[in-house]
Design a protein around this nucleic acid. Structure first.
Lengths: 204, 204, 204, 204
DNA sequence: TATGAATGAGATTTCATTCAT
DNA sequence: CATGAATGAAATCTCATTCAT
């Protein structure tokens, strides 16, 4: 009770429970505080507000995920430019991503599935948008190699969507990290092959 | 005040606006009523409660969708059993499904994206489960033709997930029905091909 | 539905059910009307308002009870003045009273036990007051025969209270009229004897 | 605002006023809070809900009453078993009971007369049942001494009823504790004598 | 470092009642 | 004879947030 770090930690632990059960919007600060053996005021001492408490849980894991996404995407871009074979890289990327996703499993679940009403409620869409942007450049370069073809924007966006959701789906359905790595492999394989085959359409 | 049906219709129209903007949980009956030029009591005259108002918007479109899903799935099962070629059928199914989905675009969006807190909050999951169940049977029969192979349950479930989400994604990104039909075509093609290739794994 | 008398009757029948179950205050006109296959408006056509509906149920039985009470009390007064023996009369009074009370058992129960919130919520107290008033006169005359004695007002009022409640209690605990007559007999006997013995106190 | 205990106390004081005037069901938390110079939220800070506020008023007095009732009843049982004379004990019991009843007069009135709709709405009936249970045993032993006689169940129950109501009636009609003690004395005397005389009937 | 008190705004829901038709 | 529509007031309750201490 006296150790400040401990109180903060207990608050976060209780908040994780509550957010996971009720979602951000329906979560009650009173219940979180009470469960932590503290009062609502304590939340406002340690965090700015309800959203601040939520941030304290998800911000760091999110940043690490975004970092990995960015690194991978930059690497990927170069690969396409050099027509390199990069199957192994995909697995390396998946491994890194899954490593971080499962490092704080609860936080990740909360961020991806229970953020409605919070400042993060569109996080999945924002990640998709991020991917989209990179794919845009990549696909344009790819298309330039095939005269008479152009990028199918809809498919491109759908691939971004599908790729992000593949990981979200994984998190939801496979709580074990080792199993997760095995299961995502054919999924990625499928998507990579499909990307090459379906991303271009006839230019009329 | 004037036409009886008009008030109910105004209430539903206002509710659609509010649900779409705020989602079920955060939508305010006060605002809905006021926007319709009525009082909250009127909502309880025309509908049972907040959930009843929501149902009045989404129940019928939902039922039509489920009907089409079921019809298609039964047909699909027979096809696999007879090794028939059925690409055309997929397009017919997509056409029917999209036809209904776009018949009341707003209702569909509300049902699929803004139902959290309502009795329909798990509707997408329930649709996925429905698909999953049918695929289960289908895949088992398919697997029986290939000794040494078995169904990859994870991939199977992911395909259900992906298929439903492909339509949800479509709805979200393509408000025009005609365009929607064109855009979903390669997506379905991609998924059908993938299904055959990735649904089985080595039996150890 | 078309016969007006029938509608009114159905409304009253449904109201009896609802009042008995919920009490006047918590009874819902909507539920009463619906149960009668009508709408709330119908209540206002046949009765003035919620209280009017209640009155339609209890007014007549109440009046008959009051009539009997008054008749008995006037007779009783004369008896005391003439020192007559009147045990049989008590039983006759009880028989008449119980006859009316059980003539419309439900109405009586509603009037005596479920009237809170209605215009009749103090009916038992008013009946007690009525009795009290008559006893007042009677006891004063009785006391005038015993120098050094005076009426114990508290006991007098308590006897009124007890007498009324004896019948209320009977109604509540014995739904059968014939049984009721048997059971009330020793109760009345007890009270009559007690009245004579305890109604006077020493005048200091 | 100022003294913390003061707000809670003001809330309880206002609640007593409102409950006494309107009864539990029709009492308004808004009015109670406003009268206390606070908002409804304050009620929910200090108490769990409307029933909790009611409990805060009546729970303690009630428990003390029940305690006295139980003690007296156990003592009474022994007395009958030993054919002891115990007139004095009745007065002691009455004194104790009245002492507690008048310790918080308003709370007692609210509990006994204005609890409809609350968790305590059947408290008088429960007290009667408690008494009834004890009398059951007592009367059975008494009856065993008189061959050819049996307990008149209806009278027995009516005595329980009458005894409890004698105190309720007292509370209602005599706000002064000292006066109350004097007034209840002949009432108890009357009931004790009656009990012995009327509790048995011929066994057929 | 945190509490305890309290606010103020808002939520859904229920109700008796009215009235044009 | 009765409906169907609608009101307006009120109800309990929940919540994030604030702030003096």
């Amino acid at each position: 009770m006296s150790n400040p770090n401990e109180s903060r930690a207990r608050l976060i632990a209780s908040a994780k429970k509550e957010f996971k059960e009720k979602g951000f919007a329906k979560a009650s600060l009173r219940k979180i505080s009470a469960d932590a053996g503290l009062t609502t005021g304590a939340v406002y001492f340690f965090f700015q507000d309800k959203n601040g408490l939520f941030s304290a849980i998800v911000e760091e894991p999110l940043n690490r995920i975004l970092e990995i996404l960015r690194e991978h995407l930059i690497a990927d871009q170069d690969e396409v430019m050099h027509y390199e074979q990069h199957d192994g890289d995909h697995d390396a990327f998946a491994a890194a991503l899954i490593g971080e996703m499962y490092a704080d499993y609860d936080a990740m679940m909360i961020l991806l599935h229970h953020a409605q009403g919070s400042a993060y409620e569109n996080i999945v869409d924002r990640m998709i948008a991020l991917l989209d942007e990179y794919y845009q450049t990549m696909a344009a370069q790819y298309a330039s190699l095939f005269p008479g073809k152009r990028v199918n924007q809809y498919m491109l966006h759908w691939f971004s969507h599908m790729q992000i959701n593949a990981f979200v789906h994984l998190l939801e359905h496979e709580p074990d990290k080792t199993q997760a790595l095995k299961k995502i492999s054919p999924v990625l394989d499928f998507m990579v092959k499909g990307f090459m085959m379906y991303i271009l359409e006839d230019d009329l």
